[in-house]
Design a binder for these strands. Structure first.
Lengths: 216, 216
DNA sequence: GCGTTGATTGAACCATGGTTCAGTCATTCG
DNA sequence: CGAATGACTGAACCATGGTTCAATCAACGC
């Protein structure tokens, strides 16, 4: 009874698993969720359609894995940006700007991950992303309120609304064309968001200075 | 060569046309765009599936007609609310509150009409709705800026962002449960929206007093 | 009534896209 | 090597849902 999975095989399997998710992510970023189809994703990953089913029980699970991966990556990025800020308000501001900047860079992917419905099962995974995102914002908003930097308000409601504000302002169907002036659009929308939270003079206070946005 | 369409027949055909759209609207408001399927809509309208095709060339056209109808109805409502307001800022406020209140009453329908993608062809019709909505907001915002009631800003960007703010804050997947406290949620979000536009003290100025929202 | 014309029906058709699986290939171990 | 085991393939399968159309029905004008 031979065939103990050798180290090499394990590595190859893991690599393929990742390659499938990466292929799905690329497809989503190019054509939205509608483009995440088994056959094309498989082709992109260099395997046959059937093989996908050796790695994921079904399409739903693949998409869920994709969304989880995207969520971790995005939320990690804004957490890192916020954590180096000097105070609660600038941490919040940094998180917002980072989200805005990254959203602009990966428009379709973020749209797919936050907004675009597919079916009831996948909705749950998308919800997790939004939840994590909103939770991150809620936490930062609450901190700022606690520190007296923002007026009392329903942080949860505000966070949910902010996600919508950014998504629609940046990559919604009516979002202005930002090419060549990304920085300006990101700053302007962050300013609007901060005003929405009750910061009257964000610009004067230097809260919306652009920092480098990590690539990872 | 008899059979000139008699008056009665014309009426019946028109009524059926309307009944199909109404059935589609009800379906959308109950189950989102996914529930707008030819067979169920036909059943709801009391006709056979094939008959739909005597009234609409295809599903796309039916959905487009539905969205057009919804757009007219909704935008009419907020225009009426704004037009009776005493000044530009309260007109803007009235439009926002009306949109919020009506959105809360027809959650799925508004979500379907603003956000839920279906396919490329239908997207165009949804875009028209959003455009009309955003245009209405843009106009009101510009008026308020011109009158010196709001700081200078990109009214188009702000309008697009506000649509997102409301949709996500009210009916997005993370929107708080508003049942029983609709008024409060509507006011709170309108307040947030006005703050986003640069109105620091909307509540003090009595801008978010609830008015009756028409039913039509 | 009755012929003519248009409206209606609903089952068959078709396209799309996820899923399965019998056959083939690759890797391990004695 | 060669037997055993698992991975891979891709064409066939299936479900869903829009669309078509031959048969049927209903209304009009004579």
């Amino acid at each position: 009874m031979p065939y103990r999975r050798t180290e090499n095989v394990v590595r190859r399997l893991a690599a393929r698993h990742a390659a499938i998710i990466a292929a799905a992510r690329d497809a989503a970023n190019e054509g939205g969720m509608a483009a995440v189809q088994i056959a094309p994703v498989a082709r992109r990953a260099g395997i046959a359609a059937g093989t996908v089913y050796r790695y994921f029980p079904g399409k739903t699970d693949l998409v869920a894995a994709l969304l989880t991966e995207v969520a971790e990556r995005e939320i990690g990025a804004l957490r890192r940006a916020a954590d180096v800020a000097p105070g609660p308000l600038s941490a919040l501001s940094a998180a917002l700007m980072t989200f805005a900047a990254r959203t602009l860079r990966q428009r379709r992917l973020v749209f797919a991950a936050t907004t675009e419905p597919v079916d009831a099962e996948i909705d749950a995974a998308r919800l997790d992303f939004r939840k994590a995102l909103a939770a991150e914002f809620t936490r930062r908003i609450s901190n700022a309120i606690a520190g007296g930097h923002l007026p009392e308000q329903d942080a949860t409601l505000a966070a949910a609304a902010l996600v919508g504000l950014f998504v629609d302002g940046l990559i919604g169907p009516l979002a202005p064309d930002a090419s060549g002036r990304e920085r300006e659009v990101v700053q302007s929308l962050t300013l609007t968001a901060l005003r929405a939270l009750g910061v009257a003079d964000a610009r004067a206070r230097g809260l919306v200075v652009q920092t480098r946005v990590s690539d990872q």
